[in-house]
Design a protein around this nucleic acid. Structure first.
Length: 226
DNA sequence: ACATTAAATTCGA
DNA sequence: TCGAATTTAATGT
């Protein structure tokens, strides 16, 4: 069973749980490691877990009608994903891929449903998470077609700083430019150009294997009108 | 695609 | 265990 302090650290939602609910959650969680580039869950496959990233980076992607790959979201440490499929007991509508070696905490469906049934703290968390995800997707629909590549890169990075989805993240992101490209749906050289532009604008600092975000607000609103 | 630089790893003392 | 040498990874153009 996963140690209490590990769950506590990786799952912000577990911190507000009633003691009984915390123990139930702990009993329902298992840990698993996926190598870089591996598929965690294929499109259309059942995957009966709610997943949390302990360390690493994954992305959720799907194919658009014309066969192009679309990245729905990147998830890094502290983020939890897949509540939709678990709630409905449906197969995943998207593919989950590890961008680098990634350790996941997996909460089985029965425990997830038990927590919804018995813990108000858990439900409160879920409502917040779903609400924030909705905001995230609305922003994406609004911007995807309008923004230039720098804007899309800015958007992808801003998403990783969302304080509701990633409660413990600080302004320093450990991410390579290759990974930024994969999240924003651009090539690494384009990601590099975009990052240099954002650096020149004073919004962030590009470092080796890391990005130091100086101004999250401007990052989020980069390229927006008004 | 290639050249450059940073970091991680290995190896010898 | 330290630091130099080598290899690997990330970046810049």
């Amino acid at each position: 069973m996963i140690p209490a302090d590990v769950l506590h650290r990786v799952a912000a939602w577990s911190r507000t749980l009633e003691p009984r609910a915390f123990e139930r959650a702990r009993a329902g969680v298992q840990e698993r490691t996926y190598p870089a580039g591996s598929e965690i869950c294929a499109h259309g496959q059942p995957f009966d877990y709610w997943g949390g990233v302990i360390e690493g980076l994954i992305k959720l992607r799907t194919l658009s009608a014309d066969g192009k790959e679309v990245t729905l979201a990147g998830v890094h440490a502290g983020g939890w994903f897949g509540e939709g499929s678990v709630l409905k007991g449906e197969p995943r509508r998207y593919q989950v891929v590890a961008l680098r070696e990634t350790r996941l905490a997996l909460l089985d469906r029965a425990s997830f449903l038990w927590l919804m049934e018995h813990s108000t703290a858990f439900n409160r968390f879920l409502v917040h998470q779903l609400n924030d995800r909705l905001g995230f997707f609305m922003a994406m629909v609004e911007h995807d077609r309008m923004l230039d590549t720098t804007g899309r890169v800015a958007q992808a990075l801003a998403a990783l700083l969302n304080p509701v989805l990633y409660p413990d993240v600080n302004h320093r992101l450990t991410i390579t430019q290759e990974e930024v490209g994969q999240l924003a749906g651009v090539s690494r050289p384009i990601a590099n150009r975009a990052l240099k532009a954002l650096d020149a604008a004073g919004i962030l600092r590009v470092e080796y294997g890391e990005i130091d975000v100086l101004d999250p607000d401007r990052l989020r609103s980069y390229g927006h009108l008004s």
